[in-house]
C-alpha cells in the first residue's frame, strides 16, 4: 500500500533519515519505535508529505507521491493523520472539526457529514460533545475527536504520530482503546509510539529506528523477546 524507497531527509545539514526503505501492506499495523531524535516522526510525516523528502521515492498504491506533479491533497484525503498535540481546529466546534473537510472537499453533503460524525462520535462515546469547542475538552477527549475527524474522511491508512505522548497517564487508556478497536476492524496503520506494551499488543510488525535508519524490523514477539542488535537490547532495557 505504501512503499518507501531510499528516503533521505535532513534538517539544516543534519541527516535525520538516511536511505530508509520499507513497504507497508494493506491491513498491516506497523509500530515505529526508537530513541527520541532518531527520525521516527520525520519518517511518518514524510509518508503524507508534511515533510518534503530530500531524495527517495514514496509510493501510495500506484501513485508516486514524491513526484511534484502528483496532487498531494487528493492523496492526503486517503491518509488520516493523528498528531501528538491533537491539533483540533480551535475556532470550530467538535462537529465542525469533523465535518469541515468532507464537506469542503465535496465528498459528503452537510447532512451526510453530520450523520456520519454523530455515529463516529457515538463510537468513542463523545456524542454529547458535538457542540463544544476544543478548549473545553480534556486531552483524551481531544485525541479521540482528532481520530474521529480523520475517520470521517474514510481513510485507507491511518498515521499516528505519538498519539498518547501529550496525555495525562489516566487518559492514555481511552485513546489506545480507540486505536485498538480500529486495528480490530482491519484498518491499515502506522504508529509512532513510546507505549511498548501497546506496540506489542496491536502491531503486526515493529520497526526500530535508530540514527535515521531502520536498525531492526520484526513481528513484535520476535523483536521484543529476542532483540538482535546491541542497540535495541539497550533501548528495550531502558524503556521496558
Amino acid at each position: 500500500m505504501i512503499t518507501v524507497k531510499n528516503l533521505c531527509k535532513s534538517f539544516n545539514g543534519v541527516k535525520v533519515l538516511d536511505n530508509v526503505s520499507t513497504r507497508i501492506e494493506q491491513g498491516e499495523k506497523v509500530a515505529i519505535i526508537g530513541p527520541s531524535g532518531s527520525g521516527k516522526s520525520t519518517l511518518l510525516r514524510c509518508l503524507n508529505l508534511l515533510e518534503t523528502p530530500d531524495s527517495g521515492e514514496i509510493w501510495f498504491e500506484d501513485k508516486l507521491i514524491t513526484d511534484p506533479k502528483t496532487n498531494i491533497n487528493k492523496i492526503r484525503e486517503h491518509m488520516g493523520m493523528v498528531f501528538q498535540s491533537f491539533n483540533l481546529f480551535a475556532n470550530k466546534t467538535v462537529m465542525e472539526n469533523i465535518t469541515l473537510a468532507p464537506v469542503k472537499l465535496g465528498l459528503l453533503s452537510k447532512e451526510e457529514a453530520k450523520e456520519k460524525a454523530l455515529s463516529l462520535l457515538k463510537r468513542v462515546n463523545l456524542e454529547e460533545k458535538a457542540d463544544s469547542y476544543p478548549s473545553s475538552l480534556s486531552g483524551g477527549q481531544k485525541q479521540r475527536i482528532a481520530i474521529v475527524r480523520s475517520l470521517a474522511m474514510n481513510p485507507k491508512v491511518m498515521l499516528f504520530d505519538e498519539p498518547t505522548s501529550a496525555l495525562d497517564p489516566e487518559m492514555v487508556g481511552e485513546v489506545l482503546d480507540v486505536i485498538k478497536s480500529l486495528a480490530e476492524i482491519g484498518m491499515t496503520m502506522v504508529i509512532v509510539t513510546h507505549e511498548m506494551g501497546f506496540a506489542r499488543e496491536v502491531a503486526t510488525r515493529v520497526l526500530f529506528i535508530e540514527d535515521g535508519g531502520i536498525a531492526e524490523e520484526n513481528p513484535p514477539e520476535l523483536l521484543f523477546n529476542s532483540p538482535q542488535s546491541k542497540r535495541l537490547q539497550e533501548f528495550l532495557s531502558k524503556v521496558l
Binding site: N73, I75, R76, S85, L88, F89, L100, A101, L105, S150
Partner: peptide, 27 residues
C-alpha cells in the same frame, strides 16, 4: 497561530488556501 492547525488542515486533504481561510485567518 499554532503551526499544527495548518498541518491538521493539510493532512485532511484541504488546500493551503482553504485551511488559511477556514482555520488560520479566523484565529
Amino acid at each position: 497561530v499554532d503551526k499544527g492547525q495548518m498541518e491538521a488542515g493539510r493532512s485532511l486533504g484541504l488546500t493551503k488556501a482553504m485551511t488559511m481561510k477556514e482555520i488560520v485567518l479566523p484565529q
